[in-house]
């Protein structure tokens, strides 16, 4: 008798497993079609750096604290500024934390991949430009009925 009960229970459990999976055929997807659909990160995200040229004194504390040695201090006329090599940067943003003059800032720009190695070297002038506004509008949202998925951000 016992084997029959065991087999029946196994059949029920397998059916439940299949039904659980089938229910999710109609679930909204978790993934985005990057770069057509772009994920919007919030302010405070540790993307590439923004350098305020007027505040920077060229003291070099950012280069000292950088764990990956990706910052070089380069001369520009009478002054010195940091230059970043993003091929090495690990985006820990200790440089931003340690800057005594608040000359460095995090930006929400996260896609800075380039085709050549040279383009990954960001000069002080390039770092000082604010990020270009892109069509980032998808956010990760959880609601109790539809579940978790990436949805377009609500217009404010």
């Amino acid at each position: 008798m016992a084997p029959i009960i065991g087999k029946a229970k196994a059949a029920v459990d397998i059916s439940i497993a299949y039904l659980t999976g089938i229910r999710h055929l109609f679930h909204r997807p978790y993934t985005l079609r990057f770069p057509q659909q772009r994920y919007a990160v919030e302010k405070g995200y540790r993307g590439r750096h923004l350098l305020h040229l007027d505040r920077c004194t060229g003291c070099g504390i950012c280069a000292w604290i950088c764990p990956e040695k990706c910052i070089t201090i380069v001369p520009r006329g009478q002054r010195w500024y940091p230059q970043y090599f993003y091929g090495r940067c690990c985006f820990c943003h200790f440089c931003t934390d340690y800057c005594p003059e608040f000359a460095l800032e995090e930006t929400v720009e996260y896609d800075i991949a380039e085709y050549t190695r040279d383009r990954l070297v960001w000069s002080p002038e390039r770092l000082s430009k604010p990020p270009v506004k892109k069509d980032d509008k998808y956010v990760f949202s959880v609601d109790t009925i539809g579940g978790a998925s990436q949805v377009p951000q609500k217009e404010e």
Binding site: E42, R46, C90, F91, E106, A148
Partner: peptide, 22 residues
């Protein structure tokens, strides 16, 4: 792997990074 995103996204709000927070 999909549900990890729930907490990765939450950690991103808190720390600014998705995986390696420092």
């Amino acid at each position: 792997l999909g549900d990890r995103e729930l907490f990765i996204d939450l950690a991103e709000k808190l720390t600014g990074a998705r995986i390696t927070y420092s």
